[in-house]
């Protein structure tokens, strides 16, 4: 499909949909879908892929939630500075590109306050 044709079709379909929407079965005036996630929230969501949906951990993968902020911060910082030569290489690498503000944000997000 050419861009022009696509633009045209899209304009058309938007209007069609707007009209259809007026007759639709959908919840009228659904509430605002707020919540564009912050950088820390997006990173925390990435952590959840291995550490579980709530950072609860599983088996050999440790829980993030429930650690103290200080302990978590210390671990994250130590691993970030590590040279990745053993079984921790996955975390050492994943943490390398993170800036200090993000690391602190993650410690705050998951760690329990003192």
């Amino acid at each position: 499909m050419t861009c022009i044709a696509r633009g045209w079709a899209q304009g058309l379909s938007r209007l069609a949909l707007a009209l259809a929407g007026a007759m639709a079965l959908s919840p009228a005036g659904a509430a605002a879908p707020s919540g564009v996630p912050s950088a820390v929230e997006r990173w925390a969501a990435a952590c959840n892929g291995c550490h579980g949906a709530r950072g609860e951990g599983s088996g050999a993968i440790p829980a993030l939630r429930g650690q103290s902020r200080d302990a978590l911060r210390a671990t994250l910082l130590a691993w970030q500075q590590d040279e990745a030569s053993d079984q921790r290489h996955v975390m050492v690498r994943v943490l390398k590109p993170l800036d200090p503000a993000l690391l602190e944000g993650l410690a705050q997000h998951y760690g329990t306050p003192p």
Binding site: A24, L25, A30
Partner: peptide
Amino acid sequence: VLGAAGLATALGRRALAASPSSS
């Protein structure tokens, strides 16, 4: 166009005039 394509069951309303975050 709608008639030809069959009426779509729209799952939400695309807010054309309203602010983009209203639905």
